[in-house]
């Protein structure tokens, strides 16, 4: 089915370079997979650092995801609908945390919410609490969700929304009954990206929340802490994290495939 002229010829320098990168990408993951036997994995999971970190990661990322979906969906909608220069400024601002290094975000969070920070005068002092972990995760991970969902909302045909309105739907109902169901693939994709990013959050959390076992020590921080004590525990925890990320990726891909509605226009063209 592929055009033979577009198909890649074998053994061009480009193919070699591409395959080189592929090996480079997969080799560390293979090494991680081979490092721990199942027995070692079980033993490592019993290490006192691991279970509290796993529980904390599960709790904080779940709260982060809920916050991001509840606040990020309306923000994505506003960005997708807004026209004019201000909309583009706000969009760029939302994307900033994607390109700013997490450690820099950690410092910025301290300056905003620390005891001596902008809101310190109001008695706000978040650092080194579980709340700080969630704040760091939200700031670092939300942009991935907003970006994905805003792109999804931009793809919703204006006419569908106008039709829904003329059929008696309020703007809110048109949003919930038409725009959101049609954007479920983008929402699932954004949620998966956001959750994976929150699960892996390290730099901002370390600077802003510290690494207190049971309170602020999430899985990535536990890996860092375990590395100083027992490398095998660190590898085992790392493997668990990698597996979680892999499962998230597969689930998101499957969900995306199941949730896409064929557009009648496209189906009509085939007839």
């Amino acid at each position: 089915m592929a055009d033979p002229y577009l198909r890649l010829r074998r053994a061009t320098p480009g193919v070699a370079l591409g395959l080189g990168l592929l090996v480079f990408l997969l080799l560390p993951i293979a090494a991680l997979g081979l490092a721990s036997s199942p027995g070692e994995l079980w033993a490592a999971l019993a290490h006192p650092l691991v279970m509290p970190a796993l529980a904390l990661s599960a709790r904080t990322t779940a709260v982060t995801l809920a916050i991001v979906i509840v606040t990020g969906t309306p923000l994505a909608w506003m960005l997708a609908r807004a026209r004019g220069p201000w909309a583009r400024v706000i969009e760029t601002a939302v994307e900033l945390p994607i390109v700013i290094p997490p450690a820099v975000m950690g410092i910025a969070l301290l300056l905003a919410f620390g005891r001596q920070g902008l809101l310190g005068g109001l008695g706000v002092a978040l650092p080194f609490t579980t709340t700080a972990v969630i704040v760091a995760q939200v700031v670092v991970a939300a942009p991935f969700y907003v970006q994905s969902v805003a792109a999804g909302f931009r793809g919703v045909d204006d006419d569908l929304l106008l039709v829904a309105r003329t059929l008696g739907a309020s703007p809110r109902q048109a949003f919930l009954r038409v725009a959101v169901p049609l954007c479920l693939p983008a929402i699932v994709n954004g949620a998966a990206l956001c959750w994976a990013r929150a699960l892996g959050e390290f730099g901002a959390t370390l600077l802003f929340a510290g690494s207190l076992p049971g309170r602020t020590q999430t899985m990535p921080l536990a890996i860092h802490a375990a590395l100083e004590a027992d490398v095998r525990v660190a590898t085992a925890v790392a493997l668990v994290l990698a597996l979680l990320a892999f499962v998230t990726l597969l689930a998101a891909r499957a969900a995306r495939r199941w949730l896409v509605w064929p557009s009648p226009a496209r189906a009509g063209a085939e007839r």
């Binding site: 006419d159 569908l160 039709v163 064929p262 557009s263 009648p264």
Partner: peptide, 8 residues
Amino acid sequence: PQGLGLFP
């Protein structure tokens, strides 16, 4: 509308 606007 022109594309009929059926909810897919």
